[in-house]
């Protein structure tokens, strides 16, 4: 078969090839994002995502959205501007969370026997869905960055609170008060993660008293806007086809 001949002989075959191609690309994209995003999130979010006794109302709320809006922004850039597919953020976060669950279940529980109720991953899906919806309805990177980025930060804590609330019930233990999450961290020994490594309730955000989570979420949302812009451009750069020679067409 010469280069000028078509690889398919009918429209039905072309559709079939196209569909097969879809699944191959989707599978490759999904696993590549899963791997890359997972490593990125573990290196930047790490312990905040690993342990319930790190999931505080200040730094976890601030850090997790900021470091996790990265790949969704980049993949959105590629899938929306090249294919008008509004699934970049959801696809990325689903990939990340599947990777996280594999890691937590098989590594943390299966190999090292930490109960899953101390090491489950954070829920990033509500923000991702809203990010995709805003991009699709607005068809604007700026709007998605500003409104979507802010929403991504704001939705993180309420999206996780139903999961972590039971672990914030207080307990009296040998004369000290702590939450059940604190007690988990104390009971289930982590030799390489001493208590002082936890970065919880640190900072100067005291003005709002106990209502610190919304303020942290707003701050996280603002920074997420900037990170969205940055990573969106990474995504666009990676989605370029400059490396394909014009001669090949």
């Amino acid at each position: 078969m010469s280069a000028s001949q078509s690889a398919v002989r009918s429209r039905a075959e072309a559709v079939q090839v196209s569909r097969t191609f879809d699944w191959m690309i989707l599978f490759t994209l999904f696993t590549a994002v899963l791997g890359g995003y997972h490593i990125h999130y573990m290196l930047t979010g790490g312990d905040w995502d690993f342990w319930t006794d790190w999931k505080d109302r200040r730094l976890w709320v601030t850090v997790a959205p900021i470091v996790s809006i990265t790949f969704p922004a980049a993949v959105q850039a590629c899938l929306w501007w090249r294919y008008r597919l509004p699934i970049g953020a959801t696809l990325s976060v689903v990939a990340l969370m599947i990777g996280e669950w594999i890691n937590r279940y098989f590594n943390f529980w299966g190999w090292t026997y930490f109960p899953v109720n101390i090491c489950f991953p954070s829920n990033l899906l509500p923000g991702a869905i809203v990010l995709d919806v805003i991009l699709m309805l607005g068809n604007s990177m700026t709007l998605t960055a500003v409104v979507g980025g802010l929403a991504y930060g704001l939705l993180f804590y309420p999206g996780n609170w139903p999961i972590i609330a039971p672990l914030h019930v207080p307990v009296e233990y040998n004369g000290m008060m702590m939450t059940l999450a604190d007690l988990q961290g104390y009971h289930y020994v982590r030799t390489g993660t001493p208590e002082y490594i936890r970065m919880v309730e640190k900072g100067t955000l005291r003005t709002f008293g106990k209502d610190v989570a919304p303020v942290s979420a707003f701050f996280s949302g603002f920074v997420s806007i900037i990170i969205y812009f940055l990573w969106h451009f990474f995504g666009r750069w990676f989605a370029k086809t400059d490396f394909i020679s014009d001669d090949a067409t």
Partner: peptide
């Protein structure tokens, strides 16, 4: 999504009315 987030948060607050921040 917004409705589910809000409803779930409300239900959690109702079910666990007494919670405290992590202690450090």
């Amino acid at each position: 999504t917004l409705v589910v987030v809000a409803a779930a948060m409300g239900a959690a607050n109702e079910k666990y009315p007494i919670t405290t921040p992590l202690q450090a």
